[in-house]
Every structure is written in C-alpha cells, then in structure tokens.
Amino acid sequence: MGSDAVLAALAGTAGVGRAGDLVAPEIVRVPSSVGALFPHGGPLAGSVLACEGPAAWSLAAAVVAPSVAAGTWMLIIDVATAHACTVEPEALSEAGVPLERVVRVTADTAGSVHVIDLVIAGLEGFGVVLLVDPGSLTGAAERRLRRRLVDRGAMVVVVRPHQLGRRVTRGAAADAVMSTSVIGVDGIGEGWGRLMSRRVMVSASGRRMHGGRHVEISLPDESTGGVSAPDTWP
C-alpha cells in the first residue's frame, strides 16, 4: 500500500468511534440461570426490566440480589401500598439482598410528586430501583427516565405482581419483560410438608431478544445464600 493511500485511509478514519461504542457493554450481575435469558449473559446497565406474573416478586429479588450484595444500594418505590401489598424484607434477605442497603419510599399516586420524579431523584444515589406497579408512564417521562438511567448506569426493575382480584397494569416499556408462570411446587402436598420453592418458567421478551427466550428456574434459589432468621418451625 502506498504511503499516500495509507495516510488518506488513516486520516479518513481518524476520530471515528467512541470508547463507549467500542468497549464491551457493562453487564449487570444477575444469577446465571436468569442471565441465560439475555444475549450478553445479563441485562445491560441502564436498562429497564419488568417482572410479571405469579412469581414476579421472587424473580425481581433474585435479579437484584447480586448487585446489592456487591455494594449497590437499592431503592424500592412502592406505588401500590395504598391499596395492596408491601414487600416483606425477610423475603428479600432470603433472596440474598443485604437489607442494610435497602431503602423504601411509598409513593402516593394522588400526590403532587410524580413517580418518575422519585425514580430520577433516587437514581442520584441508588444503583438499583425496584418500582412496584407504577402504572403507565407518559412518553416524555419515560424518555427522561431513560436518559438518566443511561447516564447513571443504573437498573430499574419494574415489578408487576399478580394480585388476586386486581388487573395488572401495563407500565413503562421495558427493555426486557420477564413473565413468570409456576409449573410446579416443591415441599408441599395435600395436607403435608411446607412450601419450599417453586419451579418457575420465565419467558423473556424485549429488545434484542427475538423470538423470546425461556428458562426454568427454582425460586427462591437456595444457592443465593440469603441470610434470614433461624428456622424454627412449630
């Protein structure tokens, strides 16, 4: 190759590409069984995940546990508290979430502060935001959220729990929607034993997940090593 041609070729390509485009995307740490659902082996930092179905809470706890255990703080924004349920810290702890790095804020949907403002304020200090049944978000609010999420490299997990007697609302568009269906239970029978875990089929769909992916996992996952009060069954 002639020198002039080389120079021209090199000069023409100078300055192309940013490190952000070139460096491998930052993958959020999740259990390997859940990571198998994602093309990169886990969700990308700055993404929105949604957990739905009868095991939504268990799945969400399993997804966030490794990040919080690694030092990230988690914020739970509980929008549904006024009319339904609240998260039980003991279950989070059993899933491996260190409770000392968990903060919960209960949002009043009738109040003047929009839930998106809470999420954005939370992203200033929390790496993981668990958003419980937030309802629908406007396009502008979602764009604001996404900009901030990408800036912070944080993760938002939207939990849309299956609740008796209530329809599940569709919320913000997620990068990945993980739907759960229970295919079996362990430990419990007709009048004997106790519920130890559930075998859950998780179906993921969303961006870059063409055709959907499925994985069967056990929730709660005993391998997470969560800390809980001593077992003292009657």
Partner: peptide, 23 residues
Amino acid sequence: RVTPGGGLWPGAVVRPAPNSVPV
C-alpha cells in the same frame, strides 16, 4: 439494625417467607 437476633422464635414461619404482605 437488620440482623435477626434476640433468640429463637418458635412457631415462626420458616423460610421461604412470603415476599408480599398485605397492608
């Protein structure tokens, strides 16, 4: 603050605990 202590609680529900509790 979050470490279980204060002895055993016979009769408590064993793990896994319910992860959603009605208000």
